[in-house]
Amino acid sequence: MAAGGDHGSPDSYRSPLASRYASPEMCFVFSDRYKFRTWRQLWLWLAEAEQTLGLPITDEQIQEMKSNLENIDFKMAAEEEKRLRHDVMAHVHTFGHCCPKAAGIIHLGATSCYVGDNTDLIILRNALDLLLPKLARVISRLADFAKERASLPTLGFTHFQPAQLTTVGKRCCLWIQDLCMDLQNLKRVRDDLRFRGVKGTTGTQASFLQLFEGDDHKVEQLDKMVTEKAGFKRAFIITGQTYTRKVDIEVLSVLASLGASVHKICTDIRLLANLKEMEEPFEKQQIGSSAMPYKRNPMRSERCCSLARHLMTLVMDPLQTASVQWFERTLDDSANRRICLAEAFLTADTILNTLQNISEGLVVYPKVIERRIRQELPFMATENIIMAMVKAGGSRQDCHEKIRVLSQQAASVVKQEGGDNDLIERIQVDAYFSPIHSQLDHLLDPSSFTGRASQQVQRFLEEEVYPLLKPYESVMKVKAELCL
Rank of each mutant, 00 (worst) to 15 (best):
E360T: 00
Q455T: 11
C399M: 08
R329N: 11
T111G: 06
C27W: 13
L469V: 12
L46I: 02
L108H: 13
M89K: 03
S31T: 12
M312V: 14
V251S: 05
M299A: 00
C180N: 05
G8W: 11
R188I: 02
E81W: 04
A410H: 14
F327E: 04
A256Y: 00
A291Y: 11
A110I: 06
R137Q: 09
R137C: 06
L84M: 09
N185Y: 01
Q416Y: 13
T347R: 13
R234L: 02
V29R: 10
E464S: 13
E50W: 00
P10G: 09
D317W: 02
H310G: 06
K75G: 00
L423R: 12
H107G: 05
L346D: 14
I427S: 15
I265F: 12
L252M: 13
N336D: 07
D191I: 12
F345M: 08
F160H: 10
T111H: 05
T244E: 07
A235W: 07
G394A: 13
L121C: 09
L258I: 05
K477P: 07
H91F: 13
S140E: 05
S448C: 06
T227G: 03
A47K: 12
Q210V: 02
L346K: 04
K224A: 05
A453W: 09
A150C: 03
L255N: 14
I72Q: 11
M225E: 08
D144E: 08
Y13N: 14
N384L: 13
A47W: 02
K246V: 08
C305M: 11
K233A: 06
D349K: 13
H93E: 05
K218V: 00
D73N: 05
V413H: 11
H159R: 03
L271S: 12
L132G: 06
L130W: 08
A348I: 04
D332A: 06
E220G: 10
L55I: 11
D422E: 04
A90C: 11
A256D: 01
A388T: 10
G214W: 09
D420Y: 14
Q210F: 03
R459S: 10
L186V: 05
R20K: 11
N336Q: 03
M387T: 15
Q205N: 02
H91R: 08
F28H: 08
P366Y: 11
L46P: 02
S448M: 12
N274R: 03
R459M: 15
T227C: 05
C113Y: 00
L346V: 12
V414Y: 02
V29W: 00
K233R: 08
V457T: 14
R137I: 09
G203C: 05
V405K: 13
Q409Y: 15
S395Q: 14
A410Q: 15
A273R: 08
G259S: 14
L84N: 11
C304Y: 10
M225I: 12
S31W: 00
A150Q: 15
P100S: 10
R338S: 03
T267A: 09
Q286T: 04
S67G: 11
E50M: 09
L319P: 04
F236P: 13
S412D: 14
A22I: 11
L193K: 10
L258E: 12
D248R: 09
G197W: 00
I57K: 00
G203Y: 14
I237D: 02
E213H: 14
I403P: 04
N421L: 11
A2V: 05
R303K: 11
F232C: 04
S23R: 09
L346I: 15
C113R: 03
G200E: 12
D333R: 00
G203K: 15
D11A: 15
A431P: 15
A18N: 14
S289K: 15
E481Y: 15
R426W: 15
I237T: 07
R296T: 12
P100T: 09
D430W: 15
E328R: 07
L46A: 06
A110W: 05
A49K: 07
V364S: 09
S434G: 12
E277I: 00
P24F: 12
T321V: 05
L406S: 02
T382D: 00
L135Y: 00
K82V: 12
V198H: 01
L135G: 14
E80G: 07
